[in-house]
Simulated assay, not measured.
Amino acid sequence: MRELTDQLVRDHCLSKEELLYVLDHMDEDSRAYLTAQAHETRVRYCGKGVYLRGLIEFTNYCKRDCLYCGIRASNQNACRYRLSADEIMAVCRKGYDLGYRTFVLQGGEDVFFTDERMEEIITRIKAGFPLCAVTLSLGEKPFASYEKYFQAGADRYLLRHETASPALYRRLHPPGMRLEHRIQCLKNLKKIGYQVGAGFMVGLPGQTNADFVEDLYFLQELQPHMIGIGPFIPHKDTPLAGEKAGTVEATLVLLSLIRLLLPEVLLPATTALGTIDPTGREKGLKAGANVVMPNLSPGEVREKYALYDGKICTGEEAAECLHCIQSRIARAGFLADMSRGDHPSWERK
């Protein structure tokens, strides 16, 4: 097992058969060695800084009905909300004053936020805070919409592919959603010039190590600038409410493998990881992650953006959330970095 890990450190690739062997034979010693090598690779390529992005969850309306998601369209128990453009700007001002230089606008696929409304919001943010990066996470859109957002000033786009297994993707999504279309969206975003983020969930019902191998190979082919993975956590008001959650251990192994496969990638230690383990995000940082996204959303809406049950940091104010995560990063042996933190290979076209 160590030989395969060393080969991964050296060559940044393994065959599918070798990756599957690693996942199938992962024991405690192998996991510790993999984590140590991922940490060393992260420090060598990215340093010890942890980029902090200010997350703004601006709408929990969504037209999709994905089986795993708490804000799915058919969830009648969801308490819906939308932030206005002025409210979003006020959150950005608060975040900027705290030192943030990246704002992540995340929401469901909300038809209220037309291209024109999104262009206005992006333009206002870039005009008010020209030194800041704007990241969008709004789901699947036509090529023309992505292009308009980019021209308005958006720099990055996060769109998890969720799983690279066509069969698993079909089981988890309603008719009309196709893995091929999501992958085409990711390719469109790269073509336009965004810093692109993909990613997948860990521990989905029916998911296998062979599925993870397909995820890893897809990511190597796509070469995204960012990769977001996190454990599946069931939500009480979804069809998957009774399913088991993903594990910290499996998520950390996959974080480490991603760091070794794509050594320069921007890799978050997610809120979901911190939800299933009180020190989950710190463990993620030690396993190769180098990004954290504290929540800037107004306190009164944080609990309403419930993709899964038990989400942390719903009762904190933005300053409290920042102070908390900065202290945790320092205790884990890393340095909080409030700069834009662009991927080293990216330059805006």
Rank of each mutant, 00 (worst) to 15 (best):
L285F: 09
L159Q: 06
L204E: 11
C185G: 06
I233D: 13
L252M: 09
A318L: 01
V248N: 01
V196D: 03
N188G: 00
D115P: 02
C132M: 12
P174T: 08
P174E: 11
G274R: 07
G206R: 10
R101I: 01
F103Q: 05
D27T: 06
R2E: 14
R64E: 15
G341P: 06
M118H: 05
R178T: 09
Y217C: 14
Y169S: 06
F218C: 03
Q220P: 07
Y100D: 02
V202N: 11
Q76P: 00
D337R: 01
G153Y: 10
R44A: 14
H161K: 08
D65K: 04
P239F: 11
K244T: 13
M201Y: 04
R331Y: 08
Y33E: 10
G280S: 12
L273N: 03
R124V: 05
L105W: 07
I312W: 05
S339M: 04
L55S: 09
G139Y: 03
S165L: 04
L168G: 01
E40R: 15
L159G: 05
C324I: 01
I233G: 02
C92V: 14
G274P: 13
A289D: 09
I325K: 00
M293G: 03
A250T: 14
K304C: 12
R348D: 05
L222Y: 08
E317Q: 13
A38Q: 07
Y305W: 08
I325S: 00
L273D: 12
V134C: 07
T163K: 08
R281I: 10
K283S: 10
Y61I: 03
G310W: 06
R182G: 04
T238M: 10
L67V: 02
T123G: 13
E221W: 14
T114A: 00
F218I: 06
Y61A: 07
R31E: 15
F212T: 08
T41E: 15
K48Y: 09
G49L: 01
R72G: 06
D65I: 02
I258Q: 04
H173T: 04
L262A: 11
E264T: 15
Y68T: 05
D211I: 10
G310T: 04
G246L: 13
H173R: 08
L222T: 07
I229M: 13
G176R: 08
E40N: 12
S74E: 05
L273W: 06
G128M: 01
M226K: 00
D215Q: 04
R31C: 13
P142H: 04
H235L: 01
T102C: 09
M293A: 06
V22K: 04
E347D: 10
I122A: 03
L172G: 05
D24H: 11
K94Y: 00
